[in-house]
C-alpha cells in the first residue's frame, strides 16, 4: 500500500475545503505561489492608488473629492491587509517592497495606463474595479485562510467603488457634449486593458491548473472574462456608450456575448515595462519609500528612547 505523505494529507484537506493556516505544513511550491500572487495583489493595490490619486486634487465637487479620497485610501488599506496576510507566510513587508522596487515583483499592468481626464476616474471604477471584483470574489474562498479572510474584508469594502465609478459616468452622460465625449474616450481607452486583467487564455496560462487544484483559483480566466463581458455589455447600454469592439454581439445559442480578439502583444509589452506609465509609477513608489526612510527610522529611535527611559524609571 502506498504510504500517505504530507503532500497527500495536504491535498486531502484542500479537497475537503478545510482551510490551510500559517503554521500548517504546506508544499514549498504552494507557499511560493501564494507569496507571488498575494504580494502581486498587494503591490497592485498600492500602485493602483497612483492613477486615481492623480485626480484627487482636481475632483470637480466636494462630494466627489471625498468619495475619491476614501476610495484611494481603501486601496491603501487593501494593500495593507494583503501585505499582512502575505507576512504570515514568513516573508516581511520590507522584503516584498524591495521586490517591487527592484522590478523583481510585478503588479497589475492596468495601472501603467494614464488617467488623462476626470472620466477616467469613472471608467476605472466601472471597468477596472468591475474586473477586479470579479477576480476577487472567488478568492474569498481561497484555500489559504489569511488570504481568504483578507479578501472578505477587501470585497466588503470594494463594493462602493464600482458604484461610485458608474455614478460618475452616468452623471457625465446626462451632461454636455464635452462630458459625453470624455466618457466615450475614457471607455475606449480602458475597455481592452480591463479585459486583459483576467490574464491570458487558460491554454496559455501555465500555472492555472495547479492553482485550481490547490483552490487558490476557482474559475478559469476565460470564464471570468466572459462573465465580465456579459455584464458590461448590458450596463454600457444603460450608460448609452459604445464598447470599442465591433465584434461584440449577443449570441443566442451560447446565451453569452461574443467578443473580438484581444491584442495580447500589447499586454505582454506593458508587462515587460513598455506601458506609458511603468517608469513613472515605479519611480513614485520608490521615491515615497526612500523619502520616508528618515521618518520610519526616527519613529523607531524614539520608541527605543522611550522604552529605555521607562526601564530606567522602573529601576529607580
Amino acid at each position: 500500500m502506498k504510504e500517505i505523505t504530507l503532500a497527500d494529507k495536504f491535498q486531502a484537506k484542500i479537497d475537503q475545503e478545510i482551510k490551510i493556516e500559517p503554521k500548517d505544513w504546506m508544499p514549498e511550491k504552494y507557499r511560493k505561489t501564494l507569496i507571488r500572487q498575494m504580494s502581486q495583489h498587494a503591490h497592485s493595490e498600492i500602485v493602483g492608488m497612483l492613477p486615481e490619486g492623480n485626480w484627487i486634487s482636481r475632483a470637480p465637487t466636494l462630494r466627489r473629492k471625498l468619495g475619491l479620497l476614501a476610495k484611494v485610501q481603501d486601496e491603501a488599506g487593501h494593500g495593507l491587509y494583503l501585505y499582512s496576510a502575505t507576512e504570515t507566510l514568513g516573508i516581511d513587508r520590507e522584503t516584498l517592497l524591495e521586490q517591487l522596487h527592484t522590478g523583481k515583483a510585478k503588479y497589475s499592468s492596468i495601472f501603467n495606463y494614464p488617467t488623462t481626464t476626470w472620466a477616467d476616474i469613472g471608467a476605472i471604477g466601472w471597468l477596472v474595479d468591475g474586473a477586479a471584483i470579479m477576480n476577487q470574489v472567488p478568492l474569498c474562498r481561497c484555500s489559504y485562510g489569511p488570504y481568504a479572510r483578507a479578501m472578505v474584508r477587501v470585497c466588503k469594502e470594494e463594493s462602493f467603488h464600482q458604484r461610485q465609478g458608474f455614478e460618475i459616468l452616468m452623471t457625465m452622460m446626462e451632461g454636455n457634449e464635452a462630458q459625453k465625449h470624455m466618457v466615450q474616450d475614457a471607455v475606449n481607452r480602458w475597455w481592452w486593458p480591463s479585459m486583459m486583467m483576467f490574464g491570458p487564455s487558460d491554454g496559455d496560462s501555465p500555472n492555472s491548473a495547479q492553482s485550481m487544484k490547490w483552490k487558490i483559483k476557482r474559475f478559469s480566466n476565460d470564464d471570468l472574462r466572459q462573465k465580465f463581458v456579459d455584464i458590461c455589455a448590458e450596463q454600457a447600454q444603460i450608460l448609452g456608450i459604445t464598447l470599442p469592439d465591433p465584434d461584440l454581439k449577443w449570441n443566442e445559442e451560447r446565451q453569452h456575448y461574443d467578443f473580438g480578439e484581444i491584442d495580447w502583444s500589447e499586454f505582454w509589452n506593458v508587462v515587460k515595462g513598455n506601458g506609458p506609465c511603468n517608469k513613472e509609477r515605479l519611480d513614485a513608489r520608490v521615491k515615497a519609500h526612500e523619502e520616508g526612510a528618515w521618518v520610519r527610522e526616527a519613529a523607531m529611535a524614539h520608541a527605543e528612547k522611550r522604552r529605555k527611559r521607562k526601564e530606567a524609571a522602573q529601576v529607580a
Partner: peptide, 21 residues
C-alpha cells in the same frame, strides 16, 4: 490629500487621508 499614495509608510498614508477626509 496630496499625500495620498505617497506617504512614508502605508499606515501613515491612511492616517493622513483620514485627517484630510
Amino acid at each position: 490629500s496630496e499625500w495620498c499614495g505617497h506617504g512614508p509608510v502605508l499606515e501613515q498614508d491612511i492616517a493622513l487621508t483620514n485627517i484630510a477626509l
